[in-house]
C-alpha cells in the first residue's frame, strides 16, 4: 500500500471509530431526553379522584373542594358532573362496547366526582405521600363515596422515576468513559503512526507548538467531523423509531411527544466533540516527543 493510501486508511478507520462513539453518546442523549419527557407526561396523569354520593348537596361539594384546594401542592380541583362523566364514558367505550353505553340502568351508577391534579413542580417521588394525605383528609367526609388515586400505579411510577434517574446517570457515565477511551486510543494509533515525523521535526528544530499544532488541529477536525456525522446518524435512527411508533405502535400515542436534540443541543454537541478531539490529540502528542530516544527504538 502506498504511504498516502495507508495514511488515508488509518484516518478513515479513526473517523469511523470516533463517529461510532459519538453516535452512541448522541443517541443516548436523544433517548434520555425522550424518556424524561414520557415520564413527565405520565406524571401529569397522576391524580386523585373523589367520587361523590348521589345525594350530596352543592354546599357539601364546595366544602370538599375547599379542603382539597387548601393544599399548597394542588394545582386544580375539577368538578365532573354525572352528565359529563356519562358523556366521557360513552365516548371512550362507544367503539369497544356499544351495547354497554346503551344500558341506562348501568349508567346511573356512574357518580359525579372531583378530579384533583398536583402542581408540575411537585417531585414524582413525593406524589404518593401527598395523594394519600389528601385522600385520608376527605375520605370520611359526608357525601364522599370513595377516593381513588391509583395507589399501586403511583407507587410504581415513583419507584420507576427514581430507578430511571440512577440508571440513566450511571449508564451515561459508563458510555462517556468508554467512548473517550476508545476515541483516545484511535487518536493515539494515528499519532503513533506518525511518531517518526515527530522525531524528525524535533531534530530539525521545530518548536513544541509547531510539532503539536498539526496533530491538535487534526484531532479537532476529526472530533468535529465525527460528532457531526454522529448527529446525522442519530437523527436517522430517531426518524426510523418515530416512524415505527407512528405506524405499528400508534396505539401507544408516543410519537407525538417525541423530539430530537434542539439546534443549540446539536451545536453544543459538535463543539464538545471538537474540543474532545483536540484534547485527545494533545494528550497523545504530549507523550510522544521523546526525540533521540525515539529514534533508537
Amino acid at each position: 500500500m502506498r504511504p498516502a493510501a495507508k495514511n488515508l486508511a488509518l484516518k478513515l478507520s479513526t473517523v469511523i471509530v470516533a463517529t461510532a462513539c459519538f453516535a452512541v453518546i448522541s443517541t443516548g442523549l436523544v433517548l434520555s431526553k425522550n424518556f424524561r419527557k414520557m415520564i413527565t407526561l405520565w406524571g401529569e396523569s397522576v391524580q386523585l379522584t373523589v367520587y361523590l354520593s348521589q345525594d350530596i348537596s352543592a354546599s357539601g361539594t364546595e366544602h370538599i373542594q375547599k379542603i382539597l384546594k387548601s393544599s399548597a401542592q394542588v394545582e386544580s380541583v375539577k368538578y365532573i358532573t354525572q352528565e359529563k362523566a356519562l358523556g366521557d364514558f360513552r365516548t371512550q367505550l362507544a367503539s369497544y362496547a356499544p351495547d354497554l353505553t346503551q344500558d341506562d340502568e348501568l349508567l346511573q351508577l356512574i357518580p359525579a366526582s372531583l378530579e384533583v391534579s398536583l402542581k408540575s413542580s411537585v417531585p414524582a417521588a413525593e406524589h404518593l405521600g401527598i395523594l394519600s394525605g389528601l385522600a385520608s383528609k376527605v375520605k370520611n367526609l359526608e357525601g364522599v363515596d370513595e377516593v381513588s388515586y391509583g395507589q399501586e400505579w403511583v407507587s410504581k411510577y415513583s419507584a420507576l422515576v427514581s430507578a430511571f434517574e440512577v440508571v440513566l446517570n450511571l449508564l451515561g457515565l459508563v458510555i462517556l468513559a468508554a467512548s473517550v477511551f476508545v476515541m483516545s486510543n484511535a487518536i493515539r494509533a494515528s499519532v503513533n503512526s506518525r511518531k517518526d515525523e515527530i522525531v524528525v521535526l524535533e531534530m530539525i528544530g521545530a518548536t513544541q507548538s509547531m510539532v503539536r499544532k498539526p496533530f491538535i488541529t487534526e484531532g479537532a477536525l476529526l472530533g468535529a467531523m465525527s460528532s457531526a456525522m454522529a448527529v446525522i446518524l442519530s437523527f436517522m435512527l430517531y426518524t426510523l423509531m418515530k416512524n415505527i411508533l407512528q405506524g405499528r405502535l400508534s396505539f401507544l400515542q408516543l410519537s407525538e411527544h417525541m423530539s430530537f436534540l434542539s439546534i443549540v443541543g446539536v451545536i453544543g454537541f459538535v463543539i464538545c466533540g471538537t474540543l474532545l478531539g483536540a484534547f485527545g490529540s494533545y494528550l497523545c502528542v504530549r507523550r510522544v516527543n521523546d526525540g533521540w530516544a525515539g529514534s533508537q527504538g
Binding site: P3, A4, D196, E197, V199, S295
Partner: peptide, 9 residues
C-alpha cells in the same frame, strides 16, 4: 542517522 529517518509519505 543510520536508518535515515526520512518521512515516507
Amino acid at each position: 542517522f543510520q536508518d535515515f529517518k526520512l518521512l515516507k509519505d
